[in-house]
């Protein structure tokens, strides 16, 4: 790691203030992606602003038909939450399969979403459930949040405070794991929501996205058979040593089918 200055604040305002003073600062939540990146000297922030001391960012609350999850809530806490398991079991399961148990004890929902790794799991849930990302400045609709590979709608001094997930009628997430990293080669989240059927795809392309054609097909008939004829264009797919674009496109359909089956 390169040298940096370390700041830990007990409040959102304090953290933002530290960020504004920093030359090239970075917020760090659980650090499960950030620290390995820094260890490989692939990132060189001048300042690290640790959000780990901000109590108000931690916790899960039920607000009517939604669940609000504080940004610094760990994956393990989401997975173990009775409220999440009852209202959105898909989300508890998704959180309980990110990384491994030790990673889940440190990694947070806010960190995952703000990082927007193309192969991360949470972004698929945010998109498919039509969640709202709440920040210290505003509320951002899930559909508007993820703007590109490792890019989001967040400003430099903006940090996620919580994510609010409306309860779906049914939802399922199917992940095809990279055998090495265990990240998603393809992850598909299918949800029946008040807003209709929503399909979100992670891992397959440079940024999580809605599978609009799959959604259309499923609106006609919510069954795995309905996905079969959908064209998933290969040319937009990621390709690496683990999966070619062709295989990823195929997996998008397979994982969608399986998610649909798990919803019904």
């Amino acid at each position: 790691m390169y040298e940096f200055s370390y700041h830990k604040s007990a409040s959102v305002d304090g953290a933002v203030e530290a960020m504004n003073k920093a030359e090239d600062g970075k917020f760090v939540a659980g650090g499960q992606t950030m620290l390995p990146t820094m260890k490989h000297r692939l990132a060189a922030p001048s300042d690290i602003i640790d959000l780990g001391g901000i109590a108000e960012l931690v916790g899960i609350t039920v607000e009517g038909d939604s669940i609000n999850i504080g940004a610094m809530t760990t994956h393990a806490a989401v997975a173990a939450s009775g409220d999440v398991q009852t209202m959105i079991p898909m989300l508890a399961k998704l959180a309980g399969n990110i990384g491994d148990p030790a990673v889940r004890n440190r990694g947070t929902i806010g960190g995952s979403i703000a990082n927007n790794d193309p192969a991360a799991d949470y972004p698929a849930a945010v998109l498919a459930l039509g969640a709202t990302v709440k920040t210290n400045k505003r509320e951002i609709a899930g559909d508007d949040f993820f703007t590109g590979m490792f890019e989001t709608a967040l400003a430099d001094d903006e940090l996620i405070t919580s994510v609010s997930f409306p309860k779906p009628t049914a939802a399922a997430y199917m992940k095809f794991e990279n055998p090495a990293s265990r990240y998603a080669i393809v992850g598909v989240c299918v949800a029946k929501t008040d807003d209709g059927i929503r399909v979100a795809v992670t891992g397959a392309t440079p940024c999580v996205h809605r599978g609009k054609q799959l959604e259309e097909a499923l609106k006609g008939e919510f069954s795995s058979a309905a996905c079969v004829g959908v064209d998933v264009p290969e040319d937009q797919m990621n390709a690496d040593i683990h999966a070619s674009a062709e295989y990823r496109a195929h997996l998008v359909k397979v994982m969608t089918k399986r998610a649909v089956d798990a919803c019904t």
Binding site: N178, P179, A180, S181, Y183, I241, H242
Partner: peptide, 23 residues
């Protein structure tokens, strides 16, 4: 089933960590 060490044509080791080399 899992382990395949891969270099690209320029000789860069693609599988240089447990993120890409499947143990």
């Amino acid at each position: 089933l899992l382990e395949g060490c891969r270099y690209d044509s320029e000789g860069q080791l693609i599988t240089a960590s447990y993120m890409d080399y499947a143990m």
